[in-house]
């Protein structure tokens, strides 16, 4: 940090502010596609000569996202240094927005897939997902009115966005694949609320799924703070 300090001394506050604003703009633009932002790209395209003060700039950008936009800049992959934005404001179900906004049908699709993975203990074979979708009139081999190429959407777009992980199962012949929650889903999706909706659909008490209920509502003594425990 002393190096950062030294770097800051060489720059005017206005220069640092401007660079911070550029970083915020860049992240907002890149977030249009919901693909995580690589730190390497951020540095190469925007930060450039300011890389010595990078920690300070990213700290200030995070502050702007929180204070102005109500968003949280999260590093989801500390190894590859990927950033995503998630909402920092709670959705109050009692007081929905009075202005209707367009809904995104992909949210429905994601709910189905993430929901099944969660209810099945965290991992499912891809066949199971395709079967469910087929029952819902979404055939992974055909072009869908709403989703286009569904297989591509699910195994490529959702994977790049880090909603899903899609991996080959080891030692299977013929080759088989499985789905898990991606890192974005871990940050963005509330297991408690998924379970709540599941319970509503099945007209069943959410606590009847003991394991899932435990996972969605970790006890307060648990050291692992869960982003999904807010209610």
């Amino acid at each position: 940090t002393s190096q950062v300090q030294k770097g800051l001394e060489k720059l005017s506050p206005a220069q640092v502010d401007q660079k911070t604003a550029e970083v915020v703009q860049y992240i907002l633009v890149k977030d249009q596609k919901k693909v995580p932002i690589r730190r390497a790209d951020l540095v190469k395209n925007i930060v450039k000569d300011y890389r010595t003060v990078y920690p300070e700039i990213i700290k200030r950008a995070s502050r702007i996202f929180e204070q102005v936009f109500g968003l949280k800049l999260v590093e989801i992959d500390p190894k590859n240094h990927l950033y995503i934005l998630v909402n920092n404001l709670d959705t109050p179900p009692s007081n929905p927005s009075p202005v209707e906004h367009p809904s995104n049908p992909k949210t429905g699709l994601l709910f189905v897939i993430l929901g099944v993975i969660f209810m099945k203990g965290g991992v499912v074979r891809d066949k199971l997902v395709w079967n469910i979708l087929k029952k819902l009139r979404v055939d992974s081999g055909l072009k869908h009115d709403e989703f286009g190429d569904v297989r591509k959407l699910v195994t490529d777009e959702f994977v790049r966005q880090r909603y899903l992980e899609y991996n080959r199962v080891a030692h299977t012949e013929p080759v088989e694949y499985e789905f898990r929650w991606g890192q974005r889903a871990d940050m963005e999706v509330s297991k408690a609320k998924i379970l709540e909706f599941m319970a509503e659909l099945h007209d069943q008490d959410p606590r009847s799924w003991t394991q899932q209920y435990k996972e969605a509502n970790p006890t307060h003594t648990s050291s692992q703070a869960s982003s999904s425990s807010h209610r």
Partner: peptide, 18 residues
Amino acid sequence: LGDSHRRFLQNMMTLGIT
């Protein structure tokens, strides 16, 4: 700004125009 400002801004981001 407070959370009310932030929520309003987020709605504007979603709606574009109102």
